[in-house]
Every structure is written in structure tokens, then in C-alpha cells.
Design a protein around this nucleic acid. Structure first.
Lengths: 362, 362
DNA sequence: CCTTCATATGACATCGATGTCATGACACCG
DNA sequence: CGGTGTCATGACATCGATGTCATATGAAGG
């Protein structure tokens, strides 16, 4: 591969002049510039980043560590592919800053992280982003250098800069929308509470109920570790069965995520219950392969992982340029509710009618 | 960040000696080695790749171009996420060769590819892999240099080295298995025939029928562009409806992919047909989020994108090391059939019974 | 016409790691 | 004891781009 020396020789100028043409540095005569540019094209010259970066002491590279790529089993997981979309967002945010993103994969083994960090440091990355596959607390090894670090989809105890989803608010927004649609008996089937999302989302559910002055009825609650191969579906079945037998059964089942909602569809069908006429179902994630393809399409709330990545990228650029190193609080990201046919829109007047009916039949 | 000069000064030796310690090059006295190693630890020294690579004229970097990250809409697409798993495989294959993979994203715009290639060349990548999001023919700009290139999940007209899924064989394997389970009337709902997979898979279906001496009945065939928002589901419904009204209706519906199968579940339910007792459903992809969560779980065939990526990585390493530049034919990759509850295992004796029944009721 | 200054260009050093060659200190052999 | 070889180490050049400083050329101003 040719160098500026080759170009200089061919153009009959000094290497420095070629450099000036490349960087629009100092002044270059018009004719000279032409000659040089022609020579570069002829040789198919491409500037060597290594040499450039050695001189400039700036790599223009940002390192990104993730399990996005290798954590997954073949074609899927429980959660959708959050980290993937985060990575996409990061790329988008950084590409506009002229940075090259180097992605490394933990291959599902957290113990490889230090090694990956070393590789990145050897490439003299200007910043690092760690992307977690689901909302969680992590504990990364301290960075030896003062290399800026941003955590995406996770936080740590040291107060490292981070960007995380606003699970609580998202769930509250969805439940608010259900309430606005006239629903008053809303059940909540939550994920394992040992996950951050499994804790925050139920809180959001509760927030929305409280706001609307609705009672918080524990009979409408269930914790379901639904993706356990055997016990999961059974547990889900039992929970739903229990709720439907209630004196005042729920009119909507709010699920911990879209995949759980898909399983709930199957269960309700087996029970002979029609969605949404007899009971509504709502998800969480807007996992489109599921939400849009299910029949009827699923009402859910979107956690914009993409935007989360963009924010993380922007935050890193701030740190690199030395701005606002002070603000320690995590950036929270929320997203829109997608209203689809899996939940009926109950008009307030209808609600009254139902109530009246209920009173009458008593 | 410290350099070997810093380390050398601290250890009281020459930079070259430090280099020797780093690379286990020439002989180094035991005491000297200790001193140097202590100094490196103390300074938190990390070798600069830029300087190293400039001298060595070897970057140790492989470039990977994909739409894996940005092509996707939020959380999903039709096909699952093939390219993602391919990328994972590539990483796995190359990491064992000590290469760093630099991933760049087309952000869904093919016109950005030349720019990305330039960026990679400026990093002096030793090889390039292009990963397509679905099995297709592509036309990349010619690489100026003699940089090795491997196409993954796609081929081009120039005969560039490539690794692609063996769609035809995979579909044949699945249909063979259905036949082995006793099914004789197998319908095929195919994807758009303008996609490579939409052509090869039906061929595989036909291969398997021919092998078993079963008739190729066009009444059991339909092309369905199922993911068209409006017409798609309707078309699918009509096709299934038509087949079920046949004199001798199919006992299994073989779908172009798992997502189509999910939609077929919904349609069959609406038609009041029970899966798998009244009719079986088979998919393609083993898109686990769907195949395992559907009720009943979906019989499908796995296209091991992961392995495909590994093969692509290995192929590239061959090219880089100069081996077997000759073999032009694409590498084909196949995978296992996953037999699940969506198709009944019809014993040969039962088949006879059915036939008899049919004869009797006539 | 000479000074002054902007313009256009080049010589040279530099970034950090490492290949090449040289040198000094021993050890072993005849 | 001199010669030959091995071991341990360092001096120096080099990779390619670019920052610093110097120089040459011509134009404008007095």
C-alpha cells in the first residue's frame, strides 16, 4: 500500500505538501494540489491511521464492550435484543463525531472483560462504553488510565456515568393508558423480582394505580419466572386461572414482557377465552417480531434501546471533550406506548354500564 | 500513557531490552526481566498498537461490514437476526487467531459501503468480511488493494470467496423428516421467490418428495408475501383455506419461516383447527423466541448462522495466510432439524388406518 | 528600488516499537 | 593462553504522517 512518500515522488513535491493537501492545512498552490490529488487517485492512496495516530496521539477509536453478539443462543432470547439496538445507537451517535467504534464481545464470559479492556487500551481508545444485555448493576474493573467510561443499560456502585431505561415510568405510562381506556381491574404478571426490571416495572404499575386513585389489589399480582422450561408455563397458567376465578376478575393482563404475553395468548386460547373481547393482554418491550405478528396485535410499550445507545454515545463524547464530568446521575430514557388490538378501548360510559350491570346482577 | 521508554528509564535498561521482554525476542537476563516486568506493572504500561503495527506492517485487524446492527427496526425483523449470529461466529473464529475484529455498519445504506471500506483500509485491515442480512447476491465495489475478502450469507458474480446457507438441503432435510413421520400430503407455503431462500427452499421440498416417490402436487403450493401489512395475512388465510378444502387436504403446512408459522397458528386457531391433531405446522429458522414459546412448540429446521460465521472467519484466515486462494466454490452450511410438538408423529400403521378410513367413508 | 509581508514549499524532527548490527563479558575448546 | 562461540545488552535506523521552523517567491507599500 502506498504512502505519502510515494505520492510525493509521483507528484514531484515533498511529503509535507501532500500532507497539506490531505489535511487542508497550510496554503497549497492550485496547480500543485491538482497534481497531488491526481497522484493520490492514481496510486489508490489511503492514509495510514497508525502513523497518523502515533503522531497525533489521538486514535479516533472508541471501544465498546458487550455481550450483544455472543450472549445469545441461536436466534433469540427472553428479552429481545436490547444490547444490539443499543450498540446500533452508539454507532450512530459516534459516527457523526468521526469516531470509529471497535466492538468487542465478552462471549458471555465476564472474566474476559479485563482482557478486552487491555486490547482496547493497546489501541489507545479515547473512550469506552460498556453495554449490558439487560438492565442491571455491574462491577467493572477500575480503568487504569483516566479513559472515559460510560455504562449503557447498567449502573455500578462507583457512580460511573450511565444511561439506563426508565422502566418505572414506562410501565406507569402503559398502565395509565389502560386506565384511560376505561380499565379498572388490571392484573400484573411480573418478571423475576431479582432483576432490576422485575422490580421497577411493578413500581410503575403501582404508581399509575395510585395516581388514578385505584386500589392496589395483591390478588391481581403474580411473580412468574415464565421462561423456566417446565414450571414456568404451569405457573403462568395457574396464576391466570386464579385471577380469572376471582369475584371481580381483571379485564386486562399486563405482562412483564412481550414474550410472556405471547405465552399468555396460548394459555388464554386453551382456556377458551377470547382476546381482547373477554380479556385484554398488554406486553412490554415492543418486540416487533412478536407484537405485530401475534393475532390480535399486542398493545405494549417501547423501550427505545436505540435512543439509549445514542444517549450513551453522546454522553461519552461529552466526557472525552472534557465537558460536564461532574453530573453523576444516570440518564433515564423512556419511550412511547403502542396501542394495538389486544386491549379493548372501553368508553367511560360503557364502564358505567358494566358497573350498573354488576350492581343489578348482585 | 507510558511508553517503553518510560519503562526502560524506570528499569534502568534500554528500550530495546524492554521490547525483548515484551516479545520474548532475544535472550534477557533473569534479573533484568524481573526489573522490567516490575516497571511495566508499576506504570500500568500497555503496548501501543499503532507504533507496533507501523513497524510491523501488520495491523492484526480484520474488518467486518454488516447491516446487522442498523438494518433492524426496533426489536425484530422478518428473518430473525441471521447476520447477528454470523457476526458472532466470525468473532469466535478470528479471536482464536489473535485478530481484532472491527465492525462497521452500513446503517441500512448500501451506498456507504465504499466509505466504510476506505475507513478499514486506513486502518490497514488484513482482510474483510461482508455479512449480508439475508441470503442474496451482492455487488461490492472492487477492492483496490489485494486485501482478502470473504462474503458471508451472500455471493457475487465475480466468484469472490463466500459462505452461504444450504437452504435447499435444509428444507429437504425437514421434509424428509416429515415424510419419515408418516406424512404424505405436505403443503408448502413459500416466501417471495425473488429472494434466494424463496427459490432454494421450495427446490429442497421438491427434492425430498421426489426422493420418497411422492407426487409434486401444485395444489399444495402457495407463494405468500406474508409480511405485507394488509394483503399478507389475507393471502395466507386464503391459501390455507383453499388447501383445507381440497379433496385430500394436507396433513402438514410447511412454512417459509418461523414467523410465517406463528401467523399460521393464529389463522388455524381462528378457523377452529387444532394444531397438531388436525393439522401440523413446520417452520424454518429455529427462531427460538418463537419456535420454543409458541404453543405447541414449533417443529423447524435450524440454519446455523453461527457456524456460518465461523466458517467465514476460517476462510478469511486461509486467504490471509495465503492458502487455497484457488478454491472458488461457495462453502455451504447446513443444520439440524428440531422436532417439536407442532407435528404429529404418524406411525406407518396409522397411516394405513387413515387411508382405510378414507376409503370406507367414501 | 527597497522593505515588508503573505504565500507556497521543503527540511527535519518526532511519535513508539522493533529489526539490524555492534559490543562487551564469559565460557569452553584445543 | 588465544580463538571461537554464546549470552546479554545497547545504539541506531525505520515505519508514515505531521508539527515546527526555514526558505524562496512574488506582491504591495513607501
Amino acid at each position: 500500500m502506498s504512502t505519502i512518500y510515494d505520492v510525493a515522488r509521483l507528484a514531484g513535491v515533498s511529503p509535507k505538501t501532500v500532507s497539506r493537501v490531505l489535511n487542508a492545512d497550510g496554503p497549497v498552490g492550485e496547480k500543485t494540489r491538482d497534481t497531488v490529488e491526481r497522484a493520490m487517485r492514481e496510486l489508490g492512496y489511503v492514509r495510514s491511521n497508525a502513523a497518523r495516530m502515533m503522531r497525533a496521539q489521538r486514535s479516533g477509536i472508541v471501544g465498546l464492550i458487550t455481550g450483544a453478539i455472543s450472549t445469545k443462543n441461536q436466534l433469540s432470547t427472553q428479552q429481545g435484543l436490547p444490547d444490539l439496538y443499543i450498540v446500533q445507537g452508539v454507532q450512530r451517535a459516534l459516527e457523526s463525531s468521526g469516531m470509529t467504534v471497535m466492538i468487542a464481545d465478552t462471549a458471555g464470559r465476564k472474566d474476559r472483560v479485563p482482557h478486552l479492556i487491555d486490547t482496547f487500551l493497546s489501541h489507545r481508545v479515547e473512550g469506552l462504553i460498556y453495554v449490558a444485555e439487560y438492565h442491571q448493576e455491574v462491577n467493572l474493573p477500575e480503568l487504569p488510565d483516566d479513559t472515559p467510561l460510560v455504562l449503557a443499560n447498567c449502573i455500578d456502585a462507583r457512580g460511573t456515568a450511565s444511561v439506563v431505561p426508565d422502566d418505572r415510568r414506562l410501565q406507569a405510562d402503559l398502565v395509565r393508558r389502560l386506565i384511560a381506556a376505561g380499565h379498572r381491574r388490571i392484573a400484573y404478571l411480573s418478571l423475576r423480582p431479582d432483576m432490576v426490571a422485575g422490580k421497577l416495572r411493578p413500581q410503575g404499575y403501582r404508581d399509575a394505580l395510585a395516581e388514578a386513585g385505584l386500589p392496589y389489589d395483591t390478588a391481581l399480582l403474580a411473580n412468574v419466572d415464565f421462561d423456566q422450561p417446565e414450571t414456568g408455563p404451569q405457573l403462568l397458567w395457574d396464576s391466570i386461572d386464579r385471577m380469572l376465578r376471582l369475584d371481580r376478575p381483571p379485564t386486562v393482563l399486563c405482562c412483564g414482557n412481550d414474550q410472556m404475553a405471547m405465552m399468555v395468548y396460548g394459555i388464554l386460547r386453551s382456556m377458551g377465552r377470547k382476546v381482547p373481547d373477554e380479556i385484554g393482554v398488554a406486553g412490554f418491550d415492543n418486540y416487533r417480531a412478536i407484537a405485530e405478528t401475534l393475532y390480535p396485535p399486542l398493545t405494549t410499550v417501547e423501550l427505545p434501546y436505540n435512543a439509549l445507545g445514542v444517549r450513551a454515545g453522546e454522553r461519552l463524547m461529552q466526557l472525552i471533550s472534557g465537558e460536564s464530568r461532574d453530573d453523576q446521575s444516570p440518564v433515564l430514557v423512556a419511550g412511547p406506548v403502542h396501542w394495538r388490538a389486544s386491549v379493548t378501548e372501553v368508553r367511560p360510559e360503557n364502564v358505567v354500564t358494566f358497573r350498573t350491570l354488576r350492581e343489578e346482577t348482585k
